[in-house]
């Protein structure tokens, strides 16, 4: 569906149908299994309210994961997203302190995200710093900056901002729509635009892309900028939903969650492919695992370990895929 590579594509060159099927569609199988398990074993799990709640809870991870999917499509990685979310929280706090118009604040937050992304993109595209190194530096510096900028008042009571987190439309809370809009946009970008094709071309063979006249640097900077904007947007959603703009908790570990969602969703870390629907499913799988563990009273620490195990499994499955 929303994939940049053409239909019928297979990552592996010579493996049996079952393996290929699992590698391509494992995330949907996992999603079905999770739903089935909870339907049977978790009391009062399959209720309209709970399903709505899960769709709302998954929103911030999904928003960040969409940008991450583009970055990973170029064979890059963006570790700065969590820090960008924190910066987003601090910017909201600072501007609210100063009594700035709420819509201006929203725009300012997105611009802040774009700036962080453009720094990452410039380091990667023009200074040819490895993405993991460039964005790791921003992860550390970004959260540091966010904490320095921390507002005096950590609780958010601005009604306009709050609407992005707890407003309701057609019975579903705002974060669902906060994620739906970027999902549609990114899906269209990947599927229908020149930019989307260039992203996967660069991820597959950057040298060949350059020699074919693709503006590699511009495309890379744009990709990281999109990732930054989406991360900032997710930071705003979290702030609005939790009514706090605390930069030390906002977006913590989101880089890992987003990468996992993307990889579990079948976008290979080696680039050359962006799976939007897979990423949505990947994010849902992450959310459902967390929620299942909570429903069954498993501690937060244990659920973190579970997340780590999933990351390892997903990356391991990809390694086998890449080897063939």
């Amino acid at each position: 569906m929303s994939e940049a590579t053409a239909t019928g594509s297979r990552r592996s060159l010579d493996r049996d149908g079952a393996t290929v099927f699992l590698q391509e569609n494992g995330v949907y199988v996992a999603l079905l299994l999770l739903v089935a398990y909870n339907a049977v074993f978790t009391r009062r799990w399959v209720t309209v309210d709970n399903i709505k709640l899960q769709l709302v809870l998954v929103a911030p991870i999904l928003i960040v994961a969409l940008g991450m999917a583009l970055v990973i499509g170029t064979e890059g990685i963006d570790l700065s997203v969590g820090a960008t979310m924190a910066i987003s929280a601090s910017v909201i706090g600072q501007l609210l302190d100063r009594g700035i118009n709420s819509y201006v604040i929203v725009v300012a937050v997105l611009i802040a995200g774009m700036l962080v992304g453009s720094i990452a993109g410039t380091l990667v595209a023009f200074f040819e710093v490895q993405p993991i190194v460039a964005t790791l530096a921003l992860l550390v510096a970004g959260r540091g900056l966010a904490i320095v900028l921390q507002a005096s008042n950590l609780s958010v009571s601005d009604p306009t901002i709050s609407r992005f987190g707890i407003g309701k439309f057609l019975g579903i809370q705002a974060p669902f729509y906060d994620a739906l809009v970027p999902v549609v946009i990114i899906a269209l970008v990947v599927r229908r635009t020149v930019f989307g094709r260039r992203v996967v071309a660069i991820g597959d063979n950057v040298r060949a892309s350059y020699l074919s006249g693709i503006p590699v640097r511009r495309t890379l900077v744009t990709v990281y900028m999109i990732s930054g904007v989406l991360a900032a947007w997710a930071g705003l959603v979290v702030t609005a939903r939790t009514s706090t703009n605390d930069p030390s908790t906002n977006g913590l570990y989101y880089e890992l969650l987003a990468i996992t969602a993307v990889v579990v969703g079948g976008t290979p870390l080696s680039g050359g492919r962006v799976r939007v629907i897979g990423t949505i499913a990947g994010a849902l799988v992450m959310q459902l695992i967390a929620s299942t563990l909570i429903f069954h009273g498993v501690s937060d620490a244990v659920s973190k370990i579970a997340t780590a195990v999933i990351i390892i499994l997903a990356v391991y499955a990809q390694r086998k895929r890449a080897r063939s």
Partner: peptide, 13 residues
């Protein structure tokens, strides 16, 4: 191989 093809993309792409 190095300068020309995008191996994982389709003929069309």
């Amino acid at each position: 191989k190095a300068d020309g093809i995008l191996p994982n993309l389709s003929i069309k792409d």
